[in-house]
């Protein structure tokens, strides 16, 4: 392999084969990929969960993770929160001419490690190279497929009195990326990037009345909760004092002019569950390493139809709207 990826690697010829044979196949280590057909033939069952996601994060490497780990966890989580057991992923790479091969090595190593941790296999993929200036170093798309184990999870199942549970601290990932991007500040802050299929499984196997699960990625906890009740006759009442936020995230957000409730999370989930089962679910979540800080943060109410309203730590009230565009750091 050369030191940098050139346009040749995307041509489908010898160099492409070299890339696949020396860098991709040995890492992903499974017979479905090694067969190298156009598509992967997989053993199947009746209902499948299928998801896709593209990853364009900048910078590629940030405290607590990188684009590779994200690309696996993101798709695994999307399947898991639908009640699916994620099994197989595809991986499409779009590389910019001039990308250092060593960088690609690191990213692939992260993907492989993340896949192993999540118990999934990357079984098919594609690689393209675009001219310098036509792609921002590296874009990844992963699609994933899994078997539906727990049907019926949907925001429509939410009922008055249900409890809202957050699996851990809010805003870690978004803040870590903003810090890394600003380049000027360092700290102990890390992305929370993690696969949640184990945690989802633990929650759903309790037999509790789980209405819906979702991972609050772009737009953060506030946006996802709004999605749950948009257009509904029900709303959500949150308690600010119950929402776990790391002090370093709080501090960084204050400096950057961000709000942790609107920062992305890549290793957390929101769970709406029947009132009587809330304590049981929280206890089960806390047994998992990804759910150590799980807590009930609010209640579903008929009082604010379609809205999310939070009681602040001072006892006041504040409406949390959906994030309109990207969160911009504020000066004033």
């Amino acid at each position: 392999m050369d030191e940098i990826i050139t346009l040749d690697y995307g041509s489908g010829g010898k160099k492409t084969s070299a890339l696949i044979d020396t860098m991709i196949v040995p890492r992903m280590k499974n017979p479905y990929l090694s067969a190298l057909g156009d598509g992967a033939i997989l053993p199947g069952e009746k209902d499948l969960v299928f998801s896709t996601d593209s990853f364009v994060v900048d910078p590629l490497f940030f405290p607590g993770g990188d684009i590779g780990e994200l690309s696996v966890c993101g798709t695994v989580n999307d399947i898991a929160v639908c009640g699916g057991e994620p099994k197989f992923l595809s991986c499409a790479l779009i590389l910019e001419e001039g990308l250092e091969t060593a960088v690609l090595e690191k990213v692939l190593a992260s993907m492989s490690a993340a896949a192993e941790r999540a118990g999934v296999q990357i079984v098919t993929g594609d690689t393209k190279v675009v001219e310098r200036g036509r792609g921002d170093k590296l874009y990844i798309n992963t699609s994933g497929i899994g078997f539906l184990r727990f049907p019926g999870l949907t925001p429509k199942a939410i009922r008055e009195g249900d409890k809202v549970i957050l699996s851990g601290t809010a805003g870690d990932h978004g803040t870590a990326v903003m810090l890394a991007r600003s380049g000027m500040m360092q700290g102990e802050l890390k992305s929370d990037c993690a696969s949640l299929n184990g945690l989802c499984s633990a929650i759903l196997q309790t037999g509790a009345g789980v209405r819906v699960l979702r991972d609050p990625t772009r737009g953060g906890v506030a946006t996802t909760l709004n999605e749950f009740v948009e257009g509904s006759t029900l709303g959500i009442a949150l308690d600010e004092t119950a929402i776990p936020v790391r002090p370093e995230v709080e501090a960084a957000c204050e400096m950057l002019g961000l709000d942790p409730l609107y920062c992305a999370n890549e290793g957390k989930l929101l769970c709406v569950v029947a009132q009587e089962d809330a304590d049981l679910v929280v206890r089960e979540m806390q047994k998992c390493s990804e759910g150590q800080n799980a807590a009930v943060i609010g209640t579903v109410t008929a009082r604010y139809p379609g809205r999310v309203v939070m009681k602040t730590k001072f006892g006041g009230s504040r409406v949390l709207q959906k994030l309109a565009g990207a969160q911009l750091p504020r000066i004033c």
């Binding site: 000027m184 500040m185 360092q186 700290g187 370093e248 501090a251 960084a252 400096m255």
Partner: peptide, 8 residues
């Protein structure tokens, strides 16, 4: 909080 940055 362990935040470090250059200021004037």
């Amino acid at each position: 909080m362990g935040m470090r940055r250059k200021i004037r």
